[in-house]
């Protein structure tokens, strides 16, 4: 089932074309990752999907009644606003205390429930924001560099949780990430964005495309090497382990 379909999307900000002729679609149960250098319009694309920015041209069609779980790149909380982590979980919709506790446990921030959001570390806040997004049982999960500030273990946990959530909620996932290696393993499709879509498709095809190489240069080779390495390992585990 098609959750999201974007056609010929242009977005101009301050008279400057940030996105040009972007096409993108996403189905239920699919994980799609957007790659691109800084200033390539990744966050702009996500913000136009959640409705913060109106298209200058083109269409963004969402499935009727689509609920979105959104994790922003960072959340700045004004110091004048008191907010406990558990209260943040119930904004804007109230959730049962049991559900909140479970979501926080899954995100690995159980003992932070009564703390002020402003007292959390960057990584803890990202985990809490993911927990909040999941509480809505979203059809579409949108993550803007959600692993920013997470340590190695946190990042690994995060991608594991993502894989599980995709199956449990049967939701679509659209994310921005810079971790090429993790992206290649976790995504069904990759979209390279630099104002317009430069290449898109399954990770192995995208990595091999000239557009991808032009965009990421030598990073590309590292990611590719790691990716192949993992695959080789997965294919011949008995030989390597014995």
């Amino acid at each position: 089932m098609r959750l999201l379909s974007i056609e010929n999307l242009d977005i101009a900000l301050g008279g400057h074309l940030v996105l040009e002729d972007v096409d993108l679609s996403l189905a239920r149960g699919e994980i799609v990752t957007i790659l691109g250098p800084n200033g390539s319009g990744k966050t702009t694309l996500l913000r136009s999907i959640i409705g913060s920015l109106a298209p200058t041209r083109g269409h963004i069609d969402k499935a009727p009644g689509l609920t979105i779980g959104y994790v922003p790149q960072r959340l700045h909380l004004d110091a004048t606003l008191p907010m406990t982590v558990s209260r943040l979980m119930s904004l804007p919709r109230r959730h049962a205390p049991g559900a909140v506790a479970q979501a926080l446990r899954r995100a690995g921030v159980t003992d932070q429930a009564d703390r002020q959001v402003s007292a959390l570390s960057g990584g803890q806040l990202q985990r809490a924001l993911l927990a909040r997004a999941l509480l809505e049982s979203p059809d579409l999960l949108i993550l803007d560099e959600a692993t920013q500030g997470l340590d190695h273990r946190g990042t690994a946990d995060f991608y594991r949780q993502l894989a599980r959530v995709r199956h449990e909620l049967d939701c679509g996932v659209l994310m921005i990430s810079h971790e090429l290696h993790a992206v290649m393993r976790a995504s069904d499709r990759v979209v390279c964005l630099n104002r317009s879509v430069r290449c898109a498709g399954p990770p192995e095809r995208v990595v091999a495309s000239p557009a991808y190489r032009a965009m990421f240069g030598h990073d590309n080779l590292d990611a590719l090497a790691l990716y192949r390495h993992d695959h080789d390992q997965a294919r011949v585990p008995s030989e390597l382990s014995s």
Binding site: I68, Y70, P72, H76, L77, L81, M83, L91, P92, I142
Partner: peptide, 19 residues
């Protein structure tokens, strides 16, 4: 109340939640 609070917290979070 809830909608005002969400909009105050973060405009993008509000948009995503339909506020």
């Amino acid at each position: 109340w809830s909608r005002l609070l969400t909009a105050t917290l973060n405009a993008d979070l509000a948009h995503a939640s339909g506020v």
